[in-house]
């Protein structure tokens, strides 16, 4: 059943694109949508907190064991001193910005990572009949605080690397604000790619493998300085899967390894363009949605 046909059956008041508060973005509707998001997200957090012990222990263990990526880089740097001229603290900064970004993204967008399930089981039908933008409903279903462990890893590495870089004069106190901005942009860029990959599910249904391809692999690649990669791979990591714009581009400039002040602006531009494109993709996908139900 095509979404369009269902819309005509369930009436204009519940159409995905027509009468949803927040969809035509008047300030009151946006405010109402945000209020609803807050209520639903709080409920999701309260549900998770029914198992406090499990939450705390699993978050800590995940933060520690999940730092394997940095362990890998740190071991290499312990043995070989630098990667393409970047020392352990500089690479640590790349790692920190990326991990904080992905941590924030995963806390608020965990449902996008599981979006395949909505298509396979037909659960998206229940999202469509609600009088709110479908993306808001999907995102509000789970705020996964345990994913803060990823951001904690990044903060832990930053806590070691930043003071060292400040002492060596490679960073100044003024750069800290730009680093915070870079973390925020990195989170938005993970959201952009995550949303685009989730949107693909409207057409191809199964996206698990696509998510590995579009997120895990490039996210791992950008934990290292991009100088080590051939030109074509660098272009991919700075355009189509722009995680490098979130961490490498600003950090490279802040550490005085090249670039101009525009390196601090590119992440903002990439976020604006990326958000526009991926939201359009989501809406196009929503219109093309076919339920699996009977």
């Amino acid at each position: 059943m095509r979404a369009a046909r269902r819309n005509s059956e369930i009436g204009p008041e519940t159409r995905p694109g027509a009468a949803r508060p927040g969809h035509r973005a008047g300030p009151r509707r946006v405010l109402a949508a945000l209020k609803l998001y807050w209520i639903l997200a709080s409920a999701s957090v309260r549900a998770a907190m029914q198992y406090k012990f499990d939450f705390v222990t699993s978050s800590i263990i995940q933060a520690v064991t999940g730092a394997i990526d940095y362990y890998f880089v740190a071991v290499i740097l312990w043995k070989f001193k630098t990667i393409a001229g970047w020392d352990i603290y500089e690479v640590g900064l790349l790692f920190a910005v990326s991990k904080i970004g992905i941590g924030i993204y995963r806390v608020f967008s965990e449902e996008l990572e599981q979006f395949e399930r909505y298509m396979v089981t037909g659960d998206f039908d229940s999202v469509l009949v609600r009088p709110w933008p479908s993306l808001l409903v999907v995102l509000s279903r789970r705020v996964d605080l345990s994913r803060l462990s990823l951001a904690l890893q990044g903060m832990g590495v930053a806590a070691v690397c930043v003071p060292q870089l400040l002492r060596s004069g490679k960073l100044t106190w003024g750069d800290i604000g730009f680093l915070a901005l870079a973390c925020a942009c990195s989170a938005v860029l993970f959201f952009v790619v995550g949303l685009a990959a989730a949107s693909a599910a409207f057409w191809i249904t199964r996206i698990d493998e696509l998510q590995v391809f579009t997120q895990n692999a490039p996210a791992t690649a950008t934990l290292h300085p991009l100088e080590i990669y051939p030109g074509w791979l660098r272009v991919v990591l700075l355009t189509a899967l722009p995680f490098g714009v979130g961490n490498y581009v600003p950090v490279r400039y802040l550490l005085g390894k090249g670039g101009t002040w525009m390196n601090l602006v590119w992440p903002l531009i990439a976020c604006a363009v990326g958000l526009t494109v991926s939201l359009k993709l989501w809406h196009a996908g929503e219109a093309a949605y076919q339920s699996t139900g009977s």
Binding site: T82, I83, F213, A217, P218, H224, I228
Partner: peptide
Amino acid sequence: VASAIFGLVYIYLWKAV
């Protein structure tokens, strides 16, 4: 293809260090 990209990343990393 994703696994191969992971492989590429590690290969270029090891070639660099």
